[in-house]
């Protein structure tokens, strides 16, 4: 009996201390981790979409909320004076999540460009879509509000990359998500844009 109690006590105390310690470490690294994600995953995609804009879209980022949706938005102004935003969506299709940075022209409601932000660890599959700019350039200039962003096989307008159908599909799903988000949050975004 004594042994039993000491076993339970030791294990409980140990787990509690471990949990507490981890909570502390987690809360003290939280901000830093978010900065790292911005710097290494989102910033390269944004910079490659908006290579020479006057402002720093990352520093000017803001968050919009509507219903129960929350979205981080990276705003900028294009050279022709129209306003544009970039935001990240996810395609959680089969084969793991794919992050996609989508930039939209707020005045014309057209896609400016898209870029992958994360790629699946699956060797050889995800990397191809990331390197292949001719695939993502298919999205350029499509009107957001009324385009079916699915692959041609599923009734959409996008050609899959041969040998990487799974990733192509995940990117398309992310674009479909982007459309839905944009339709819902556009009024909010415009309200918060300076």
């Amino acid at each position: 009996m004594r042994e039993m109690i000491s076993m339970i006590v030791v294990l409980t105390v140990l787990t509690a201390v471990s949990g507490g310690l981890l909570a502390k470490v987690q809360s003290s690294t939280e901000v830093q981790i978010e900065n790292q994600v911005l710097k290494f995953q989102k910033a390269p995609a944004i910079k490659s979409i908006f290579p020479d804009v006057a402002n720093d879209p990352i520093a000017d980022r803001f968050t919009v909320e509507a219903d129960d949706m929350k979205l981080q938005v990276f705003p900028t102004k294009l050279s022709d004076g129209s306003k544009a935003v970039a935001f990240e969506t996810k395609g959680t299709g089969f084969g793991g999540p794919v992050g996609l940075m989508v930039a939209v022209n707020l005045d014309s409601d057209k896609v400016i460009d898209v870029r992958m932000t994360t790629h699946a660890e699956t060797p050889g599959i995800g990397t191809k879509a990331k390197d292949d700019l001719s695939f993502v350039s298919q999205f350029t200039a499509l009107p957001v509000m009324d385009t079916n962003f699915n692959l041609k096989g599923s009734g959409g307008v996008i050609d899959a990359i041969s040998g990487a159908t799974v990733t192509s599909n995940a990117i398309c799903l992310a674009a479909v998500n982007a459309k839905e988000i944009y339709q819902k949050l556009k009024p909010e975004i415009i309200k918060q844009m300076k």
């Binding site: 981890l22 470490v25 690294t29 830093q32 790292q36 710097k39």
Partner: peptide
């Protein structure tokens, strides 16, 4: 439990300071 705790600390630290 002890090992897993330190592993998680390493994981969080690497995310914060050596993300790539």
């Amino acid at each position: 439990v002890i090992i897993a705790t330190f592993v998680t600390i390493v994981e969080l630290m690497m995310q914060a300071y050596a993300y790539q």
